[in-house]
Design a protein around this nucleic acid. Structure first.
Lengths: 150, 150
DNA sequence: CACTCGAAGTTCCCTAAGGGAACCCCGATT
DNA sequence: AATCGGGGTTCCCTTAGGGAACTTCGAGTG
């Protein structure tokens, strides 16, 4: 399909999409996060083609988001999130929050999140890292940064 | 390419991907958010094929994320974020934050975010909606919710 | 009125990516 | 020696994305 690649764009959103923007990649990370971490498990859970799963896993490993770990003397492997990958899961939690709010409908959210610190069922909330007040799409101005395109 | 559709999965991440998971969709939302909101502008800014841009815009409108708005007596339109779409931009800010941290390199972030409330250059931080403490991937347990698959 | 312009698509062909099923490899078990 | 099961690889087919040319429609110009 000769897909355009986003890596060269001077945009952190595009670059992030170059890492996890392909179809299935976020769901693979979700599975690994949730403990579904072996090839056949992921393949069966998602219903993804084995060929594509291989490609995605290799790409995620190349990008430093997953690592491949032997769990037996036999050639058996499980996939784990790296620190870089674990921070991507924050993104998945925000996605899940949006889906819960706008797409879950009558049935309610399929998954609940219990926060260790307070023990309550909760969700993520976006705050300004500087002042701690809510920070949403309409609460910011965009300015060119040091890495902006020439 | 007979792509699998994610809509029917009992997972808010998958359902969200069904709305904005196709290649280009998040970048289209980013453009509209940043004020690049007309067909030819978006097409030129992204370098996306006109055919695919048409498909993506229609899908985003169908999903209630964008709306098409005439800005002239002539058939001229601009695209705007709905409330549903504006909340998706929160997701884009989290993506941008991850890209800034892990992919920007020496050059630094291409775009800076100035928070209206405090006037500072900042970024988003994920907090528990219930207790206000940090809430990241490792800080939660996943539990089946009311909309979980049978 | 005829001509041109520009925004916003639409159409067509070509290539490459995803789906699916069959096949392969390799160490362990029987 | 034969089987098993995890973890892929290979092959073919279909369809989505890229790219460029073409269309449509109202406005402005001479």
């Amino acid at each position: 399909m000769q897909r355009t690649n986003f890596r060269e764009m001077a945009c952190s959103i595009a670059r992030t999409l170059d890492v996890i923007g392909e179809p299935w990649s976020p769901l693979i990370l979700r599975d690994v996060w949730a403990g579904v971490s072996r090839f056949d498990q992921i393949q069966a859970d998602l219903g993804i083609s084995r060929k594509v799963l291989t490609e995605r896993l290799n790409h995620l490993i190349d990008q430093g988001v997953l690592e491949r770990h032997a769990y037996d003397m036999r050639p058996r492997y499980e996939y784990r999130l790296t620190a870089k990958g674990a921070e991507l899961v924050d993104l998945l939690m925000v996605m899940a929050g949006w889906g819960d709010k706008w797409l879950a409908g009558e049935a309610g959210p399929p998954v609940l999140y219990r926060h260790h610190a307070c023990g309550e069922i909760s969700g993520v909330d976006l705050r300004c890292a500087h002042c701690g007040e809510p920070m949403h799409a309409g609460d910011v101005d965009l300015l060119p940064g040091p890495g902006a395109a020439g």
